[in-house]
Computed example of a mutant assay.
Amino acid sequence: MIFSEVPQALADPILGLNDAFRADPRSDKVNLGVGIYKTEAGDTPVLDCVKQAEALLLQQESSKNYLGIDGVPAYNQAVLALLFGAEHTLCVNGRARAAQAPGGTGALRVAAEFIRNHTASRTVWISNPTWANHKNVFETAGLTVQEYRYYQAKDHSMDFAAMQADLAQAQPGDIVLLHGCCHNPTGIDPTQTQWQQIAQQCLQQQLVPLFDFAYQGFGAGIEEDAAGLRLMAETVPEMLIASSFSKNFGLYNERVGAVTLVAENRDTCERGFSQIKHTIRANYSNPPAHGALIVSTILHDETLRALWHSEVTQMRERIAAMRELFVASLSAAGVNQDFSFIARQNGMFSFSGLTTAQVARLRDEFGIYIVGSGRISVAGMTRENMPVICRAIAAVL
């Protein structure tokens, strides 16, 4: 009997919260935990560009044969173009290769195993705070996780000096995880000047950047949000990128992501990418087709691509409007504390500053579910649920 000794795993801090929300019988409950975009009606929509692409695929698809290990070729080309820009020299010179992966998490895991099994690197530096699953992904792959300070609680800002000081302790070859845009959970991103300084620090200390790029288009725009990543790619000789289309295409359950390798020359890239594929083969053999075919169909069709840009803009602008309304509604609910910083943050999340005890009261007394760290999914707010949320927060402050 070997299974009787297996201990109970702790509930996931985000998906476990989702389970608790579903089990809650209250009709006025609100889920602001998981990062899923909601419309003003509280729905998670299928984008129009996605529906049209799926209709085309239904007409054109002739086989359900296996994909190659690295997935849909047209999809991987589209990934590189979104990351670096069309006809970027990295791609022309063969220094960058992308492989389709099952979501951003799958891409991170492939990157982690590639690092652990095929390089001398053993340490990954992650921001404090960061996405709850980062540490789990890297440690499960056998890597050591260190943290660099990122957030300054007293004024709800980025502690850039502390970040630089902590990364100064990193050793050559260490991996530095960076959020490409819309930092999760703080919503605070480096300025372009700060990105330049981060890139120079990585270059000088021979650190290897690993970008988690899950929210392209949700910050300032599809092209604008890639600015830090592109600057880094022009500065350092090698890097890794884990990207995802769950949010900006609304393809949450299709698990559409990619792992991209950038190397110092074509030969090194080809050898490294062969090991990326070897890692994929040992994990899930090859990826599922449908989500990647949707994305590649949209990005290779001028009309559908323009529609996608429009729909991403609509989502981004609605989230920004909810940030402004959140700040105003907290004030209207009698909260004297200054929450204006929420309107300055980017992306789906706000790092509210609420304590663990306050978060627990919101859940237990009011049916408002947010992550224990105080991270709130602004993308789940609507004009209808906003008064309920803000009255509850006023009560626990």
Rank of each mutant, 00 (worst) to 15 (best):
D48Q: 10
E87T: 11
F349G: 05
I294S: 12
G374Q: 00
Y150S: 03
N253S: 10
Q8M: 12
I294R: 13
Y75C: 14
A395Y: 01
L240T: 09
V359E: 01
G16M: 04
T144G: 01
G372L: 07
D364K: 13
M386T: 07
E270P: 06
R266W: 04
P387V: 09
T140P: 03
S244K: 07
I241Y: 04
W131S: 13
R255S: 14
F366E: 01
V256M: 11
I370G: 05
F341D: 11
S296D: 15
V378N: 06
G353F: 05
K29N: 02
G257N: 07
V208R: 01
I276R: 01
N385K: 06
Q314P: 04
A165L: 00
L240F: 12
T260S: 15
N184H: 09
H88Q: 07
G94K: 12
E147R: 15
N346Q: 15
M163S: 14
V208L: 02
R383N: 13
V335P: 12
E238K: 03
P129S: 13
V145Y: 03
E311A: 10
F21G: 07
G353V: 13
D155K: 08
E317S: 04
G35T: 12
S244A: 08
D301K: 05
Y148F: 15
A86M: 04
A107R: 07
A394V: 03
M315E: 14
I69S: 08
A96N: 06
C181D: 10
R344M: 03
M348D: 07
K51W: 02
S373V: 06
A132Y: 08
R230Q: 14
D19N: 01
S340I: 02
N286D: 03
D174F: 05
R116N: 11
A379N: 07
P7E: 06
D166K: 08
D28I: 00
Y148R: 02
E147T: 07
Q192A: 12
V34S: 11
D189L: 04
